[in-house]
Simulated assay, not measured.
Amino acid sequence: MSTRTLYLFSSAAAPVRDIARVIEDAQADGWDVCLGLTPTAARWLGGSLDGLAALTGHPVRWDHGLPGDPEPWPVADAILFAPATFNSVNAWALGLTSSFVVGVLAEAIGKGTPTAVMPCLNAALAAHPQFEQSVGTLRAAGVRVLLGEGGAVPDGSGQANAAAYPWRTALDALREPRLHV
Results as ranks from 00 to 15, higher is better:
G112Q: 09
L55D: 07
S98I: 10
V104T: 12
L80K: 10
D63R: 15
T56E: 09
L37T: 11
L80E: 00
A53K: 01
L37Y: 01
G65T: 14
G112P: 11
S88P: 00
I109L: 15
T38I: 11
W31D: 07
F100C: 05
S98Q: 11
L37F: 03
D69I: 02
A108F: 07
A82G: 05
G30S: 02
T56A: 05
A53D: 08
L80N: 03
G110K: 08
A84W: 00
G47L: 09
G51I: 06
T97A: 09
D25I: 00
L94K: 12
D25F: 00
D50G: 11
T97W: 01
D69P: 09
L35A: 03
A28M: 02
A93H: 02
G110V: 10
V75H: 15
P83I: 11
A54Y: 02
D25V: 00
V75P: 06
A93M: 10
W31E: 06
P72H: 14
L55F: 14
F86L: 03
D69K: 15
S48Y: 14
N87G: 01
F81S: 08
L37C: 05
V60K: 03
T85H: 08
A26H: 06
T85G: 09
F86D: 00
W92R: 00
P74Q: 15
V89N: 03
L49N: 13
I79T: 06
T40K: 10
D50T: 12
G57N: 04
G36R: 00
A26V: 01
S88Y: 00
G46K: 09
L80I: 09
V75W: 04
K111N: 13
L55N: 11
T40G: 09
T97F: 01
L105H: 07
S88Q: 01
L35Y: 03
L37M: 10
V104K: 04
V102C: 11
G65Y: 13
V33S: 07
L96D: 06
V101P: 04
L80H: 12
V102H: 06
T85Y: 05
N87Q: 05
D29K: 14
V102F: 13
G110I: 04
L94T: 12
